[in-house]
Design a protein around this nucleic acid. Structure first.
Lengths: 106, 106
DNA sequence: TCGATAGTTCCAAAAAGGTCGAACTGTGAG
DNA sequence: CTCACAGTTCGACCTTTTTGGAACTATCGA
C-alpha cells in the first residue's frame, strides 16, 4: 500500500451518485444512526461518531464510513491529527430533494 | 411443501415495518423500477410487471416481489388465474411520510 | 376432465456485504 | 526527534443476498 492513514480520501460528486446507492447506504441501522447523529449534531470527529457504537472495532466502523462516503452522504476530511465527518446535507438535498428529510424524520 | 402457488401470501402491517427494511428493498434498481412502474401505472399483474425485465427468470422476479412485499411496499393478491400487484402507497405514506414521494421523484 | 397457464417455493451455487485483527502512517505532543 | 494517537487499508473469514432451474399447484379454457 502507499499511504495507510490516507490523508485525503476521495469523495464523489453528487451528480455521479445514483439513488440506489444512497438508499443502500442508508438501509443499514448503524449507518442510519450515524447519519442521524450528524444531522442533529453537525460535524464530529471519527472518534466522537464511534462513541455511539461502543465495542465496535475501528476497522468495522471505518468500513461503514467508507460506505457512506462513497454514497456521497458524508464528507470525511483530515483535521490535524483527527478527521472530521460531516453530512453533505445541502448537496444531497439538491440531488435528491426531500429525501434526506423524509428519512431523518421517520 | 404444502401449496406451491400459495394463493394468499402474508403481508406485514406497516406499523411492524422498519425504515431500514424499506430503504433496503428500494435500494435495488430492479425493485425500484418496479415500484416506479406501480406508482405510475397502478395495479398490474405479475406478468405485466415482469414484462419490463425481459429475460429474467420467473423465480428471480418472484424473489424481488417477495422482498418488496415483506418490506410492506406492495400487495400481491390472487386474481383468478393470475395475481395482482399493487403499491401500498397510502399505508407507506402514513408510516413514512414523504418518503415514497421523495424516492419516486428522484 | 384434462391441459396449459401463472406464479410460488425449494434448493444449491455464486456474488456481495459485513466483521475483525494486523499492519501501517501522518500528525501533534513532549 | 521520537512516540503515542487517530484512523485507514488489507486480507481472511463468515453471513446475507441474489440467481436460476426444478418441482409444484390453483385456476380457467377447451
Amino acid at each position: 500500500m502507499s499511504d495507510a492513514t490516507t490523508r485525503r480520501l476521495p469523495h464523489p460528486e453528487l451528480e455521479d451518485v445514483e439513488l440506489p446507492a444512497v438508499l443502500f447506504a442508508l438501509s443499514d441501522p448503524i449507518r442510519l444512526d450515524l447519519v442521524r447523529q450528524l444531522a442533529t449534531q453537525g460535524s464530529l470527529t471519527v472518534a466522537q461518531c464511534q462513541a455511539t457504537e461502543p465495542g465496535m472495532p475501528k476497522s468495522t466502523f471505518s468500513y461503514h464510513l467508507k460506505t457512506l462516503r462513497e454514497a456521497g452522504l458524508i464528507r470525511n476530511e483530515p483535521a490535524g491529527r483527527q478527521r472530521t465527518v460531516t453530512l453533505r446535507k445541502e448537496e444531497v438535498d439538491k440531488r435528491f430533494p426531500a429525501l434526506l428529510d423524509a428519512v431523518l424524520s421517520s
